[in-house]
Amino acid sequence: MKILLTGARGMVGRNILEHPESKNFEFLSPARAELNLLDALEVDNYLKKHNPEFIIHAAGVVGGIQANIKNPVNFLVDNMLMGINLITAARNNNIKNLLNLGSSCMYPRGIDSALHEQLILKGELEPTNEGYALAKVAAARLCEYIVREDPDFLYKTAIPCNLYGKYDKFDAQNSHMIPAVITKIAEAVAQGQENINIWGDGEARREFMYAEDLAEFIFYAIDNFSRMPQNLNVGLGYDYSINDYYKVIAEVVGYAGTFKHDLTKPVGMRRKLIDSTLLAQFGWKSKTDLNTGITKTYQYFLNEVVK
């Protein structure tokens, strides 16, 4: 089967292409110079030329809290255009199968219980990444609308929890939490720093899954696509506090200093745990525990980022 993978040079895309099962498919993995998803005509022409049988939409403008706060226009406009251009062009070219990757940012803020798929658009979004969330909600809803109009189209959305792993961005200013903390703690060790600041009180809770596990889920979903729910959370089913993540990363990196909490900094949602009930019914479960995932990610950081 010929599969178009957008975002093939990002963390998710590269983990998909490196997965052993990728050899069972013919992957189209164009760079932006070959396929600009912001250009609707270019997207339509690409699909007409290559005629993929299945699309995985993993492309996007991504980043942590600081990047979202600093660049809300790009996070809204670029992500929304990419999703709308690709999904509508796929429908117009009669491509029947499309797996859209959403985000747990799509869920309302301020909910302490696990977030189930029916909660999309049932409350106010988290302001710190609202633009990104709106774009992801729009793409998921567009998939639903297309299926509603014609059930022969299988356009579905997987909603991963936060991710980390190989090929992540290791930038203390613009990356997601885990690679940013790995970078910060590694630098503290190298410079002999005795204490490190944590944004907020560290009690906010987050669910992070190793990116290789998401790649494994995607191949499972391809094999079982007809029975996959329209919208499906993909996560661990449990979470950790920010303080817990700092502690594990410090142990892996070898940092023996102390942590201080900067209560003036934003922390986003206090908790963001996705409900894994439908995922369990679908028959899939993640395999990589936190310590193993952090250890592998730190080794990648040492081998490929620091060098």
Results as ranks from 00 to 15, higher is better:
residue 127 P to V: 00
residue 229 P to W: 03
residue 290 L to T: 10
residue 20 P to A: 07
residue 90 A to Y: 08
residue 85 N to Q: 13
residue 71 N to H: 12
residue 136 K to P: 14
residue 100 N to Y: 14
residue 54 F to N: 03
residue 11 M to L: 10
residue 294 I to V: 11
residue 205 R to I: 03
residue 52 P to C: 05
residue 170 F to P: 11
residue 216 E to T: 04
residue 255 Y to A: 15
residue 301 F to C: 07
residue 269 M to Y: 02
residue 8 A to D: 13
residue 73 V to Y: 11
residue 226 S to T: 01
residue 232 L to S: 04
residue 275 D to C: 15
residue 76 L to V: 07
residue 112 D to N: 11
residue 158 A to C: 02
residue 144 E to P: 01
residue 22 S to L: 10
residue 172 A to Y: 05
residue 306 V to T: 01
residue 230 Q to H: 01
residue 45 N to A: 06
residue 133 A to K: 00
residue 150 D to G: 09
residue 46 Y to G: 05
residue 4 L to F: 06
residue 150 D to N: 15
residue 101 L to R: 14
residue 213 D to H: 03
residue 306 V to D: 10
residue 286 S to H: 13
residue 288 T to G: 07
residue 55 I to Q: 14
residue 277 T to R: 14
residue 205 R to N: 06
residue 276 S to R: 08
residue 32 R to T: 12
residue 143 C to W: 01
residue 91 R to D: 12
residue 241 S to A: 10
residue 75 F to N: 14
residue 53 E to N: 15
residue 231 N to W: 10
residue 300 Y to I: 04
residue 141 R to G: 05
residue 81 L to A: 14
residue 67 A to P: 05
residue 18 E to P: 04
residue 61 V to E: 13
residue 20 P to G: 07
residue 133 A to S: 05
residue 68 N to S: 08
residue 304 E to Q: 15
residue 113 S to D: 14
residue 34 E to S: 09
residue 298 Y to H: 03
residue 93 N to D: 06
residue 181 V to Q: 12
residue 292 T to F: 06
residue 123 G to N: 03
residue 240 Y to N: 08
residue 90 A to P: 13
residue 140 A to Y: 09
residue 235 G to M: 00
residue 112 D to W: 04
residue 74 N to G: 15
residue 2 K to C: 13
residue 22 S to A: 15
residue 206 R to S: 06
residue 102 G to P: 07
residue 42 E to F: 11
residue 291 N to E: 10
residue 4 L to N: 06
residue 247 K to I: 03
residue 69 I to E: 02
residue 24 N to Q: 12
residue 141 R to V: 01
residue 29 S to H: 04
residue 239 D to A: 10
residue 212 E to N: 06
residue 54 F to P: 07
residue 5 L to H: 05
residue 263 L to N: 13
residue 120 I to M: 01
residue 145 Y to R: 13
residue 237 G to I: 00
residue 281 Q to V: 15
residue 68 N to G: 09
residue 104 S to P: 05
residue 130 E to N: 00
residue 222 I to Y: 09
residue 3 I to Q: 04
residue 261 H to I: 02
residue 203 E to I: 06
residue 129 N to V: 00
residue 123 G to D: 02
residue 141 R to D: 06
residue 116 H to L: 01
residue 160 P to V: 02
residue 305 V to I: 11
residue 15 N to E: 13
residue 50 H to N: 13
residue 244 D to V: 09
residue 99 L to E: 15
residue 143 C to Q: 03
residue 238 Y to P: 09
residue 241 S to I: 04
residue 123 G to M: 03
residue 204 A to P: 05
residue 280 A to K: 09
residue 174 N to V: 01
residue 227 R to W: 08
residue 237 G to K: 01
residue 1 M to V: 11
residue 166 K to N: 07
residue 268 G to A: 00
residue 95 I to W: 12
residue 56 I to P: 13
residue 233 N to P: 14
residue 231 N to P: 05
residue 159 I to T: 12
residue 59 A to C: 14
residue 241 S to Y: 10
residue 114 A to R: 08
residue 66 Q to W: 07
residue 161 C to M: 05
residue 10 G to I: 06
residue 252 V to F: 06
residue 249 I to G: 06
residue 183 T to V: 01
residue 13 G to C: 07
residue 97 N to C: 07
residue 85 N to F: 09
residue 145 Y to A: 14
residue 236 L to Y: 10
residue 266 P to G: 06
residue 261 H to Y: 13
residue 158 A to G: 09
residue 35 L to T: 04
residue 289 D to C: 05
residue 225 F to R: 00
residue 138 A to K: 04
